[in-house]
């Protein structure tokens, strides 16, 4: 894979996201393009990961798991970060769109995180020798995912939309603390999980693979969040009797 493939595709994907955000008329088709990007990208990743990429010197073929494990856990963290930005945004400027986007990104983040942890566990068996061990990284990741599952559970149990939005946002700001802890756990404490890799520790032929894979899954991440956002919006519009999604934007009044 050419060295510039991840960067070029990242620029394309981000450009499309900006088009989506900036132009209401583009919203009908941009997600389809990104879904196509993602689908083809995943096919490329599978071909690259299983057949084209070099083996790892010691992990041999098992090292090929890197091309799916890293993108998934990264997308999980991206999802939770989008979520906390929306949560803070909602509390400062009550906007139901931000509430819907927070819910959507949390759910998509949980999806990517759960798959990523599952893959990590499978990867641990041949390399570490165990499926699971309670090291700081695995503890903090588990706590982080449970926090967000709790966040969604709280939202589904709370009837009043205003209370739900405000208190779930407040809770998830506190819950977001688990993300930096998860990220830095491998540096702060002795752990079984290795530290973050960087360009110095990864063969360029492998690095280009997981960076490209990350961009492909980023495109899918965007599509998932957008489609999940539409679901949240439609639920809001039936619960809040807001104007439907396609109507001209009227900022809904938030009742006390």
């Amino acid at each position: 894979m050419p060295k510039w493939a991840p960067l070029i595709s990242l620029v394309l994907v981000i450009a499309l996201m900006i088009v989506h955000a900036a132009s209401a008329s583009a919203r009908a088709w941009v997600w389809k393009v990104l879904a196509g990007f993602g689908a083809i990208g995943v096919v490329v990743v599978v071909y690259f990961g299983l057949f084209f990429a070099p083996r790892e010197a010691y992990m041999s073929d098992v090292g090929r798991i890197i091309y799916v494990h890293i993108p998934f856990v990264w997308m999980c963290m991206v999802g939770f970060t989008v979520n906390v930005v929306c949560a803070v945004g909602y509390l400062f400027k009550a906007n139901w769109k931000l509430d819907a986007l927070a819910e959507a990104s949390a759910e998509v983040g949980i999806f990517f995180g759960a798959c990523g942890v599952t893959m990590g566990s499978i990867w641990a068996r041949p390399t570490w020798g165990v499926w699971w061990d309670w090291d700081p990284r695995l503890i903090s990741t588990t706590v982080m995912l449970l926090v967000y599952v709790g966040y969604l559970a709280f939202r589904s149990f709370t009837e009043d939309p205003d209370r739900r939005a405000a208190w779930s946002a407040a809770g998830v700001i506190l819950g977001y603390v688990t993300l930096p802890i998860t990220w830095f756990s491998v540096q702060w404490w002795n752990s079984l999980h290795q530290r973050q890799s960087d360009s110095q520790t990864v063969d360029p032929a492998m690095r280009v693979g997981y960076l490209f894979s990350t961009v492909a899954f980023l495109a899918l991440f965007f599509v998932f969040v957008f489609k999940r956002y539409e679901i949240s919006r439609s639920r809001q519009s039936s619960a809040l009797e807001l104007p439907p999604l396609q109507a001209p934007a009227v900022k809904p009044e938030v009742s006390a």
């Binding site: 041999s60 073929d61 068996r125 998932f224």
Partner: peptide
């Protein structure tokens, strides 16, 4: 050096792709 282990690799790729398809269907 790990010998073999393709089963783990396939399992992970199945989780990745199967999970993605499953989530897309749920949406």
């Amino acid at each position: 050096v790990i010998q073999g282990g393709w089963g783990y690799v396939y399992a992970c790729y199945i989780v990745a792709i199967g999970g993605t398809i499953f989530y897309a269907l749920s949406l």
